[in-house]
Amino acid sequence: MQTHLIPTDGLRPCFYTINAMVYAIQFALWLLLWWKPIQVTVILSKIFFAGVSLFASIGFLLYGGRLFFMLKRFPVESKGRRKKLQEVGYVTIVCFLCFMSQCIMVCFNAFDKAADIDVLNHPILNFIFYLLSEILPSSLVLFILRKLPPKRKITQYHPLH
């Protein structure tokens, strides 16, 4: 069995750079909305957020799917293989559906006044939206991944005689 090693040296700096750029753009859009709230800027901000949610959902589907199929290729007798397959599959599906539904809702919100999700005057509706799009999926992921791997036992060092 041949393993393919993928270089991961640049992943962390790339992750930080992408996140910093997304937050900087979102912060700039918020400042622009605060300074001069014109309709084009409002729509642009919502489209940007929908795009971020779309790329997040695609990322979860792509990398979660790759991890799922990589684990599926492990030998059947591998310890914990079935449980890990379920965990990875559930987390991938929950995160994909969460971000994709958020993307769709924000797109509707950008172009349809009746589909307004900025319901600050209706705290119950606001709570329901964030419960379904943020809190429930996060809770499901935490529930699925609730069992941490066991701690490694420290073995005593025995000098060779």
Rank of each mutant, 00 (worst) to 15 (best):
T41L: 13
F68H: 10
G64V: 04
V141A: 13
V22Q: 00
V106E: 05
I43R: 11
F15G: 00
M70E: 12
R73G: 11
P37G: 05
K83D: 15
L5N: 06
H122N: 15
F15M: 02
T92N: 07
G51K: 00
L61K: 06
F143K: 10
P37S: 03
F74L: 15
I128S: 10
V106K: 03
H4K: 09
C14R: 02
K147R: 13
N121E: 14
V106A: 10
S57W: 07
L125T: 02
P37F: 04
P75H: 08
L142N: 10
K79E: 15
I117N: 12
V119W: 04
F69G: 02
I43V: 14
K83N: 12
P159Y: 04
R152I: 03
Q102I: 07
F49Y: 01
I58K: 01
P137K: 06
V22R: 00
K83R: 13
M100P: 05
S78W: 11
K147W: 07
L32I: 04
I117V: 15
Q86S: 14
P150R: 04
I144K: 01
F55V: 06
V119S: 15
F96V: 09
K153R: 09
M21E: 01
K151H: 06
I117Q: 04
T17Y: 06
R81E: 06
L62C: 07
C95D: 02
F108T: 03
Y157K: 04
V141S: 09
A20G: 10
W30I: 06
F108C: 14
H161R: 08
F69S: 13
F48P: 03
L32W: 07
I25V: 15
M105N: 11
W35D: 02
V42R: 03
I93Q: 00
L131T: 13
G89T: 04
I144S: 09
L5K: 07
L11H: 05
Q2A: 08
R66P: 00
F15P: 00
I47N: 01
A110W: 08
Y23C: 10
R81P: 11
